[in-house]
Write a protein that binds this DNA or RNA. Structure first.
Lengths: 131, 131
DNA sequence: CGGGATCCCAGATGATACTG
DNA sequence: CAGTATCATCTGGGATCCCG
């Protein structure tokens, strides 16, 4: 196991400037709105741009656009434009996006379980430093 | 399942400004050096400050210090100072940190499996936009 | 309705010099 | 050796205005 980790770690080191899947995925999901967008589409299925905006709540128009473009670029969501006036655009998860949602949900389960310990540690540490 | 997701999503929405474990953990692991640090400690066990710096490779002294403080604050690593001259400080994962490493490794496995598709999508998308 | 284009700021990161 | 302090830089994200 430790040997495996060394290999993985060295691999990650060597490929950091080309493509490391782990870091790549983490980087993509770690911006402010990607996961919320994926969660919203996972929860409600297909949504139009403004529906999505309302569901998420406090995202700016610009950032929702940027986020959707990035997710589409990675194949996590698909974008369907209806040639109507006024325009209608629908977004939904792809199978790949659903897979990512599932993985992150698992990470979320762990976080739920251990979140309390993290908070406790953080509080304790704050006391140690500030007093 | 879809009902569950809606609940989780609404929960995440409502608690975004207090504490949402998922976002909290993602935020913490998503800075530039945290995961690399955790991987290094997972792979090599206990390491001194400069050993860690060499293993990671291109992290600045300042950012390694900041990263280690954050991880310590969350209880992911423990820091042991030996009162010697010259000073010696050793870092190692806590059980909590090992748990996080395991979870992220699982996400990493998924990323390894599907990384190729992501790259393919991204390339295809780039062609569509730039030509 | 669903964006695109521009400007701007706060916070994350880096480079360098110094120290117990 | 293991940091701290300071200054410079780079980037994500928000505000605002405009458009087909």
């Amino acid at each position: 196991m430790e040997k495996d980790l060394k290999n993985i770690f060295e691999y990650a080191k060597n490929t950091r400037y080309s493509f490391c899947p782990v870091r790549d995925v983490i980087t993509r999901i770690s911006d402010k709105w990607s996961m919320l967008t994926i969660y919203a589409l996972g929860a409600y299925g297909t949504l139009r741009f403004n529906e999505l905006k309302v569901k998420i709540g406090d995202v700016s128009q610009r950032m929702l656009t940027v986020t959707l473009r990035n997710l589409e670029e990675d194949g996590m969501i698909k974008r369907k434009v209806y040639p109507e006036i006024p325009p209608r655009v629908e977004y939904a998860l792809t199978p790949l996006g659903e897979g990512l949602l599932k993985q992150v949900s698992l990470l979320g389960d762990w976080a739920q379980e251990h979140g309390a310990s993290i908070i406790k540690n953080r509080t304790k540490f704050a006391k140690k430093r500030k007093c």
